[in-house]
Design a protein around this nucleic acid. Structure first.
Lengths: 235, 235
DNA sequence: TTTCTATTGTCTCAATTTGTAACAATAATA
DNA sequence: TATTATTGTTACAAATTGAGACAATAGAAA
């Protein structure tokens, strides 16, 4: 059994939650952890060290959960409603891990949570549970388990932000390997936007933006024309 | 001299800053406070009570500064960089108001700040300073004084968010009285976007959106055709 | 009263972008 | 060699936007 994080090392009242998106089977998915011995499903999250940038705290957590650094990460909202404050939930989680925190323990106090979303290449990752959780798995955004607190709302808002940023910041490529076909990119767009897109219009639009580098063809072994591979140009 | 806020009444490490936009003289302006006896210029901000929603804390502060409730308010970013942490700045402010806080005082600790922007009708407001400030005034976003900490960056980010939301959420009308002419609305758009807009295209676009209610004409007393007044339709 | 000026509301046509479908190219298979 | 599924491109229609023209009009000037 590990020690609980000490109050002096962390900023009280401040937590973060991360919505980690991946793309697989033409479906948009998020990483969900399951807390040990409780049946609670939740977003991966954590606390901010006293001498640590907020962004760095989130990156540290992502590194621990996914093994990846330098991933696309964006803050999208801070949840500060008092209804979030449910100390009994945190107590159950801690007690399920053989901790007996005092009522005044800082982890049972009210938290405001800064939410981030991350986009990662699904195949680059073997998710790892943390000390309090015994599982971390991908769930389709259409088949989420019942989540703790307001975590479902956080995912919904993350998705809305991602939809907004998709065309504005052209972030879709972060869910794919470096090289991908136009059809693969289109499937990412369709999964995020939740609707089908006309193939020819999509291809014309993407090419006209001038942000894609065309590479060699990829031969699938199947009986049809082989598509080109593309990558996003470096800025 | 007032008492300092007590630690038990507020959430430590958490503050908010508000970028309050107004429109006057065809110019976009923000409210800036000046701290008593220090020469420090800053955004209006405050702390969150232990039993208060984050949004409500910000509305409470806006009410105190502007006398307005039910104003357009939107959270846009949370600033959590460690470089923000400059306890000597807060100490100077407090000492200039005859307080002598201990080094361990919670107001001298590190803060993460949730930033909001508000849109108000300039003429509805007579800004009021708070206990620590002796002035609160409008400044054009093009002629800001030198601001404390990262407050200039906060304004820049607020403006960028406002520009993004202008067409997406059609928030421009919140800077005007209930009834306004098409030209007035156009001037708001131009001030926010920082560029001129073609009159006829703007008029056609706005009318085609179907969100404006046309009212009586407004006679200015000058020698030309009188424009119609418009208001935004209730949703 | 008539003429003049500044501004507004609308219309027209051109330019651009997007929707839609057609078609040729091609990688394997039959 | 013909067939099939898919890809890349082109062609044309529809919709949107850019740019200017023009009539309407509220008051001032003549």
């Amino acid at each position: 059994m590990m020690d609980l994080p000490s109050e002096k090392d962390y900023l009280s009242h401040i937590a973060y939650d991360s919505v980690i998106f991946g793309f697989s089977d033409n479906t948009l998915k998020v990483l969900i952890i399951k807390y040990h011995n409780t049946g609670f499903y939740a977003l991966p999250g954590g606390f901010v060290r006293s001498n640590e940038n907020l962004d760095d705290a989130v990156r540290r957590g992502l590194m621990e959960r996914t093994g990846l650094d330098s991933i696309y990460l964006e803050q999208f909202y801070t949840f500060g409603n008092i209804k979030r404050y449910k100390p009994e939930v945190m107590r159950i989680i801690l007690e399920a891990n053989d901790h007996q925190p005092e009522n005044s323990h800082w982890m049972l106090d009210r938290f405001i949570s800064i939410a981030y979303y991350a986009l990662i290449n699904y195949n680059d990752v073997v998710p790892r549970p943390d000390a309090l959780s015994d599982a971390i798995d991908w769930y389709s955004i259409k088949e989420l388990p019942t989540l703790m607190l307001d975590h479902r709302d956080i995912i919904i808002r993350a998705l809305a932000t991602l939809q907004d940023n998709l065309e504005k910041k052209l972030v879709g490529g972060n869910l794919l390997p470096k090289k991908f076909t136009m059809k693969e990119l289109q499937k990412v767009y369709e999964a995020i936007l939740g609707r089908t897109i006309r193939r020819t219009t999509f291809q014309r639009k993407m090419l006209s933006l001038g942000i894609l580098q065309r590479h060699e063809k990829r031969y699938s072994g199947r009986a049809h024309k082989a598509p080109y591979l593309y990558s996003f140009k470096k800025k």
